[in-house]
Nucleic acid binder design. Structure first.
Length: 598
RNA sequence: GGGGGUGUAGCUCAAUUGGUUAGAGCGCUGCCCUGUCACGGCAGAGGUUACGGGUUCGAGCCCCGCCACUCCCGCCA
């Protein structure tokens, strides 16, 4: 190795030493007589000085002709900077390297965008950044994200190892299981018309590993889902996948709380308090209108069903008479909401099937609202006291079936918080992390259109033991042993205690989900068979590793923590994939492509 | 599949709401400059306004189509 130090290493103590540095030309300041080159590598930067009075003319001349991001090797003597010229902004700012030798390892052409100025580079179009990802990743901010991701992965492996977990790799060439997310298919050359599928998660393998007696399994598992993308969703992503035998829910809570404490300590040097709060699905919906509540701010939903049961306002009374509820939330200080903002919120309500959105603006000491004339004094009094209504507030209502009413206001609550943040009326400490477990999810949900039950989570989730008798009598009331871990309104992961008795599993498949026995056999036969030969009680969880890293890096887009992410349409702008293949390749796979427009 | 936003110089943005030759900063090229660190100064080059149509005396701006990026809904057991 020719370099003697990295670019963030030299200090006044190194003065007098002859050193060799290698790296990229970060910036060049040519003062005519003297030339400063900042050399950058992964670790940081160091100022090198080229002084023509003290240097071979050819070397000096070569240095003046370097472009940004050329790769060079500089040899020189370390010395303290002259008094008054120190740079307090960088760790090596007390010293500089007086160059004696220069080798150009690779001349860089003019760059498509600059990587040296963080303020400029930050604003560069993401399309361009993705096309030249190798340049984008040179930015200190991006290398910091990659480094943090690596640290978190290492800390996770160490923690899991300390707790007796084995890291086991599972196949990425798996069997198609058309439940759930759409899969990527891989044609099988050896038998025409057959396909592998890339796994949406290693769910079935990890349960089989429990049957195999592994007892404690984990994996940083790549997962693949062929669904539309979002800022927090990529077609391939990574899960911290975990499964344990002979446990109950509490064991998972303790394990994950310990893991997240370790991760936060490693990544941010931050102690997070535990145990984490727990909240039931029902309470989460009632108070926040969502199953992954952001509890860093208030504006909770308040129920007014009893107050409006006999109201003269027929919209409310009618909804209640139909078995629905009336709920409201007070967006404190948002009476100034524009017509457009009210309209956006109304659209949210309509997207949930509501006819409109009732609201009250409290301005100039009066309630401005088309509906307030229908309210009795007692109703107004109830609103004022339960919502703490004051001048400048905006009160929003939803009157609908319970779940719908909650979800409408849940959506509006988040929207109002965003607006208030933009107006500077709501601020949230960026170093605040509200962790909570959401528990007691309903095991089953009902699909009105298909007229059947489906698993809220997945069909291997165990019912709460005392609810098992209700499975056939009143499926709606059965709670699943499912849990989600939520931080700051982001679903970080979820899991469950699994069904380990084949008869309960068969009941769920065939009687509740109404999957025909032949189909159950085709899709899950090997699993049901495995469970007949001694399956321990077990359960597990999967954490979204990309989302975890994004939260730790303070970004909302997981693209910022993935080295080579896909665009919103699933393409890679750097390699231009996906791309067509040759007729010969298709023929070998027994595939024929029909054009999209025919 | 649907809705919103964006697209103007290599990059980031402007263009008085349809009006003369489309501007600025950075970058780039040349010259000057011996203590800068976002170095500074002078000069210069650089544009099919994503693309294809249309309306108009006249389009970066209006209309239709299309492409790309992005955010959201659907979707993500």
């Amino acid at each position: 190795m020719k370099r003697t130090h990295h670019c963030s290493e030299l200090r006044p103590a190194h003065a007098g030493q002859t050193v060799t540095l290698e790296g990229w030309v970060h910036s060049r300041r040519d003062l005519g007589g003297v030339l400063f080159l900042d050399l950058r590598d992964r670790e940081g930067r160091t100022q090198t000085v080229f002084d023509p009075s003290d240097l071979n003319a050819a070397v000096f001349d070569r240095a003046t002709r370097l472009h940004s991001e050329s790769v060079i090797r500089v040899t020189g003597r370390v010395r303290p900077r002259p008094a008054g010229t120190e740079n307090a902004k960088i760790p090596t700012g007390q010293v500089e390297v007086m160059a004696t030798g220069l080798e150009v390892l690779n001349d860089a052409e003019i760059l498509p965008f600059s990587v040296d100025d963080p303020e400029v580079a930050n604003k560069v179009n993401e399309e361009l950044r993705l096309k030249h990802r190798y340049l984008d990743l040179r930015r200190p901010e991006m290398i910091r994200n990659l480094r943090l991701r690596s640290k978190v992965a290492m800390a996770t492996r160490a923690y899991m190892d300390e707790h007796g977990f084995l890291e086991v790799e599972t196949p990425t060439l798996f069997k198609s299981t058309p439940e759930g997310a759409r899969e990527f298919l891989v044609p099988n050359r050896r038998e025409p018309g057959t396909f592998y599928a890339l796994p949406q998660s290693p769910q079935q393998f990890k349960q089989i590993l429990m049957v195999a007696g592994v007892e404690r399994y984990f994996q940083l598992a790549r997962c693949y889902r062929d669904e539309d993308l979002r800022a927090d969703r990529q077609p391939e992503f990574t899960q911290v996948d975990i499964e344990m035998s002979f446990i109950e829910r509490e064991d998972i809570y303790a394990l994950i709380e310990g893991l997240l404490k370790r991760v936060w300590k490693t990544a941010l040097g931050m102690e997070i308090p535990g145990p984490f709060r727990r909240i039931s699905f029902e309470e989460a919906l009632n108070r926040y209108g969502i199953d992954k509540p952001d509890t860093r701010f208030g504006m909770e939903l308040v129920d007014f069903t009893e107050e409006f049961r006999a109201s003269a306002f027929k919209v409310f009374a009618g909804a209640i008479a139909n078995g629905g509820v009336v709920k409201a939330l007070n967006a404190k200080g948002l009476a100034c909401a524009t017509q457009g903002q009210i309209e956006t919120m109304t659209e949210y309500a309509k997207s949930f099937g509501a006819k409109g959105l009732a609201y009250i603006k409290v301005e100039g000491g009066e309630w401005k609202s088309p509906i307030v004339k229908f309210f009795s004094p007692a109703e107004k009094q109830a609103l004022t006291s339960k919502l703490g209504i004051e001048e400048g507030d905006l009160v929003l209502f939803a009157a609908d079936q319970w779940l719908n009413a909650c979800e409408i206001l849940g959506k509006i609550r988040l929207y109002c918080a965003d607006v208030l943040k933009q107006q500077g009326k709501l601020s949230i400490d960026p170093a605040r992390f509200d962790f909570l477990w959401v528990v007691d999810f309903p095991l089953l949900s009902y699909d009105k259109e298909l007229n059947r039950w489906y698993s809220s989570h997945h069909p291997f989730t165990a019912p709460v033991a005392e609810d098992i008798p209700l499975l056939k009598q009143d499926p709606k009331k059965v709670r699943g042993q499912h849990y989600d871990i939520v931080v700051n309104g982001v679903e970080l992961g979820g899991g469950s205690i699994r069904i380990h008795q084949p008869d309960v599993q068969r009941t769920v498949f065939e009687e509740i989900l109404q999957i025909p026995p032949e189909e159950t056999q085709l899709r899950f036969g090997y699993m049901l068979e495995a469970f007949r030969y001694g399956a321990p009680p077990h359960g597990g969880i999967a954490l979204g590793f990309d989302r975890l890293c994004a939260i730790l890096c303070g970004t909302t887009s997981i693209r910022d923590v993935i080295a080579f992410p896909k665009t919103a349409k699933g393409t890679c702008l750097m390699t231009e994939s996906p791309s067509p293949v040759t007729p010969r390749q298709l023929k070998e796979l027994y595939l024929e492509v029909k054009t999209a427009k025919s």
